[in-house]
Design a protein around this nucleic acid. Structure first.
Length: 886
RNA sequence: GCGGCUGUAGCUCAGAGGGAGAGCACCACCUUGACACGGUGGGGGCCACAGGUUCGAUUCCUGUCAGCCGCACCA
């Protein structure tokens, strides 16, 4: 591919000029496609399919970044990776969006338009947004296999849906029943339990007198929903409740009507709550429904599907539930039937999509019997066939599986998988089949009508890990990439989606659909609130990418938090990521600028290296080990931090600076080694940063004199045992300590950094003398020295002078004209106090016999070394102070 | 009611049984031949509180307080 001329790399990295070109290069080279490494182990992830409702938000960007980071890490580690992308038709959400759009644009409802023309409109919508979404995923840099892109309504996936429906039906695990479900009057469809959000609402508990039909007094019921009274069929009391024992079996007159209803006894009633009397409305309350079943009560409805009261409500017919509530209360009050009102806070179900109060509604719906499916899923999780990262989510997951109720899967929508059930006009039998049947399975009649309803979106999403791979056909992809390795998703859809994939996967493929679930949190606005359309505090990932580049967004999202926790979005964080990327870019510029045309890099030779080289290679080893471990645990935050610190602190701030001595010097073989080390370390660093910031790393890598086609398919670095050099680390530590000490003194005395000064080093032993001699050039440069004299105890120490103590040496700076002895004494006194505190702390510890006896040996040794170091430093500073007349 | 998360520098967050960290913000200095999206030096924290385990707790355990979340029930 085209390589930017190294010499002309701009000083500021411009992602906009690079990202699209690099993405096209990867994609056209086929690097995203699975299956090109047949001899290698497979590693697969299916992307949680974004809804075709609209654009992607930062939550998607986060989710996608983590998946792509894993995939890129695994690809670099030699796996045949599959990252399978796709989108979800998102039944209710998409249909609602299109309906709203049609209403606004053309002023028509879906019913005015008709089923088929409406669906055409939705397909147009789907095409448009699917295109936008895939564009956004590409802009993020996700290395997914577009040749395997799927959509939940694709023919293949739809067949999988029908197959699962038919099989479950035949096994008796799907049934149709007249039951209480959650009904959203606005969306005009049934909802599953988890699509209902329970919100605490302050309401009124009305106490209403229901008189006995025989005129012998009355009992008082307590209700929050007086508007449902027209569908009351009984009043229940607890069988052991002395107060009402005599009332059981008697008839009550239902106020505002001419009906009579019986008093029944049922243990469902809590005598302590309210008045101890509950009106029973089986068609409008799930608990009352159960009571109704137990007592064989009729189940009339007084509220219609549109949420309005019906003829049963008499003069209240046509009112909304809210209107009816007020009117009924007024009417009851007027009749003297309203005894009292008390305020009550209780949880009321709201439609999770449109926030309308959900109506418990008795209707014919399809259900999945959950107990037989949830049980094996639970057991498999307990057998650790599925691992959650972080593991605390396992508990939440199990708890849900233990308490799940039957799943209502029919939706009164048009957009989705039509339920493959046909009703016979002649005998009423139901025929359930994969393909449109010719005749009724029972009577052979050809007068069949298909169920009008569609399936819950999550019914098809639940098959996603295998329906996308061609199931129910025994495809090669199924064999090679299923079960998938990891599923990455937010904790908010653990029940909606993960649970359903798990039990359908087990039921139909006999296997967990994935081995690990990597759970992340939610992205929030900077004030900690959820990002939402209504608050208008959402951030568009495209805007972030435009301003700072996809790499900066990815780095921010991937490293912004610890596993499983939420994170807040701050532009400052993106900016700091951008700065880091720019830092890496400039480090690369530096390296490239110091590789003259035609440079041949020699192999790394440990004998030819100086301690800075040895040190950086040792640090590289440590970094490789740590980054690899963190990524293996999916701990992106820690991996990113380790790489950030190594890149910025070790490589840029120190090694590159050290390297300048050699690069600007005359020794050609030293120069060659330095170049080789620079390139080697940069190369390894780019490989490790690639999963996080793929674009900039690939762009730089293409310019480096290293072999290979592309960074995306290079090899993950390995730590080299031969580079283990703790001694070099210790030695460089002394050099750095010395440089910092001198800089500190210069800064405190306001000595201009550019002003050369003299320095005398008094070392404690010959090894240290040798170390300072060996690193003399570093000290000269980084301390801006005009002279450096190194010796042992006998050396002449300048006077007056500033001084500093480092391990095994004292540094003297004869800044005659600047030294203020009083200030210097004060500085030294503080140093004495600090060191004394350290010595005391360590000695106290070592003086504790228990510590020496029980602490691990290496800890004790380390403490002893610390003690010795502090003591010698303290002695040196004290001596220095004494020599200044203290 | 059950379960979970969080409480560390001004802000956002890491961290780990043995000397308190980063980014941003702040102060001072620096156009040093990769980078001002930079460099150097610096200030700033009884690691929420109380107990316990331990030779040693900011880290593990228990409880308290505060903030947040999930689940269940609710006439």
């Amino acid at each position: 591919m085209a390589i930017t001329e190294p010499k002309h790399l701009p000083t500021v990295y411009d992602p906009a000029a690079v990202e699209q070109r690099i993405y096209a290069f990867w994609e056209q080279s086929g690097y995203f496609e699975a299956g090109h490494r047949p001899g290698k182990p497979a590693f697969s992830i299916v992307m949680p399919p974004p809804n075709v409702t609209g654009m992607l938000h930062l939550g998607h960007a986060w989710d996608n970044t983590l998946q792509d980071a894993i995939i890129r890490y695994k690809r670099l580690s030699g796996y045949d990776t599959l990252f399978l992308p796709g989108t979800d038709h998102a039944g209710i959400a998409t249909q609602a969006r299109v309906e709203k759009h049609l209403q606004e644009e053309q002023g028509v409802t879906r019913h005015q338009l008709g089923r088929e023309p409406f669906l055409e409109k939705v397909w147009e919508w789907k095409q448009k947004y699917q295109k936008e979404i895939t564009k956004q995923i590409r802009a993020l840099g996700s290395s997914c296999d577009w040749s395997r892109e799927r959509f939940t309504l694709d023919e293949g996936l739809s067949r999988a849906v029908r197959k699962v429906f038919v099989d479950l039906y035949n096994k008796g695990l799907i049934y149709r029943g007249n039951r209480i479900i959650n009904w959203c009057p606005r969306c005009a469809t049934a909802l599953s339990d988890i699509e209902v959000e329970h919100v605490d609402v302050e309401a009124k508990l009305y106490h209403v007198r229901y008189p006995f039909a025989d005129g012998s007094g009355a009992i008082t019921v307590a209700t929050t929903r007086p508007e449902t009274m027209f569908a009351d069929v009984a009043v229940a009391v607890h069988p052991d409740d002395e107060r009402y024992r005599a009332a059981v079996g008697k008839a009550l007159k239902l106020p505002l009507t001419d009906k009579t209803i019986p008093v029944i006894a049922d243990t469902y009633v809590e005598p302590e709550f309210g008045t101890g009397c509950v009106k029973i409305t089986p068609a409008h309350d799930p608990n009352d429904f159960e009571v109704g079943l137990r007592h064989n009560l009729p189940m009339p409805q007084c509220i219609n599907a549109d949420g309005l009261l019906n003829e049963l409500a008499g003069r209240f017919q046509g009112m909304t539930r809210e209107e009816a509530r007020r009117a009924v209360v007024d009417a009851l009050a007027a009749e003297g039937a309203l005894v009292s009102e008390e305020t009550l806070t209780h949880a009321v179900g709201h439609c999770s999509r449109c926030d309308t109060v959900v109506e418990p509604y008795l209707s014919d719906q399809w259900f999945v019997r959950m107990e037989p499916l949830a049980k094996p899923a639970r057991e498999a999780v307990l057998r650790k066939e599925l691992r959650f990262v972080p593991d605390r989510f396992e508990k939440v997951f199990l708890h849900w599986l233990e308490n799940v109720r039957d799943w209502c899967i029919s939706r009164q929508l048009w957009w989705g998988h039509r339920i493959p059930a046909w009703y016979c006009a002649d005998c009423g039998a139901i025929t359930v089949a994969m393909d449109t049947p010719d005749a009724c399975s029972k009577c052979g009649s050809t007068t069949l009508t298909q169920d009008e309803d569609v399936l819950d979106t999550w019914f098809s999403s639940g098959l996603w890990p295998f329906s996308t791979m061609g199931w129910p056909e025994a495809t090669e992809d199924m064999a090679r990439y299923y079960p998938t390795n990891a599923l990455v998703t937010g904790y908010d859809i653990l029940f909606f989606w993960v649970a359903r994939m798990v039990f359908t996967g087990l039921e139909f493929t006999g296997q967990m659909p994935f081995r690990e679930v990597v759970v992340h949190g939610l992205i929030r606005a900077s004030d900690g609130r959820k990002m939402s359309k209504s608050l208008g505090n959402g951030v568009d990932p495209r805007e972030v990418i435009e301003k700072y580049g996809a790499d900066a967004l990815r780095f921010t999202l991937a490293t912004g938090t610890s596993p499983g926790n939420d994170q807040r979005f701050y532009w400052e964080k993106v900016e700091s990521s951008r700065n880091f990327i720019n830092k890496v870019w400039n480090a690369a510029r530096f390296v490239l600028m110091n590789l003259p045309d035609g440079t041949k890099l020699p192999p790394l030779q440990m004998e030819a290296m100086d301690i800075a080289d040895l040190w950086i290679l040792h640090r590289l080893n440590e970094t490789i080990t740590a980054a690899t471990e963190h990524l293996e645990r999916y701990d992106f935050g820690e991996a990113g931090r380790v790489l950030y610190d190594f890149a910025w602190d070790d490589f840029c701030d120190w090694y590159i600076e050290f390297s300048k001595l050699s690069l600007y010097g005359e020794d050609e073989s030293r120069k060659a080694q330095t170049r080789a080390v620079l390139v080697h370390v940069l190369d390894a660093l780019l490989r490790m940063l690639h999963p996080f910031i793929p674009f900039v790393t690939e762009e730089i890598w293409q310019s480096l004199p290293v072999s290979g086609d592309a960074l995306i398919v290079a090899e993950w670095p390995q730590a080299n045992p031969g580079w283990h050099r703790p001694e070099a680390v210790r030695q460089i530590g002394v050099v750095m300590e010395s440089i910092r000490a001198v800089r500190n003194i210069r800064s405190e005395l306001n000595v201009a950094p550019s002003k050369p000064i003299a320095m005398v080093v008094r070392a404690a032993d010959d090894d240290t003398v040798q170390l300072f001699e060996q690193t003399r050039h570093y000290l000269m440069r980084f301390c801006h020295l005009q002279s450096l004299v190194i010796g042992r105890e006998t050396i002449d120490v300048p006077d007056p002078a500033m001084s500093a103590v480092v391990s095994q040496a004292e540094l003297f700076l004869p800044l005659a004209d600047l030294v203020d002895l009083a200030v210097e004494r004060e500085r030294l006194r503080k140093e004495v106090a600090r060191l004394q505190a350290e010595v005391d702390r360590v000695e106290k510890k070592l003086g504790n016999a228990q510590f020496v006896a029980k602490a691990p040996a290496d800890v004790v040794v380390a403490e002893r070394e610390k003690a010795a170091d502090y003591r010698s430093k303290l002695a040196a500073v004290q001596e220095r102070l004494a020599s200044l007349g203290e």
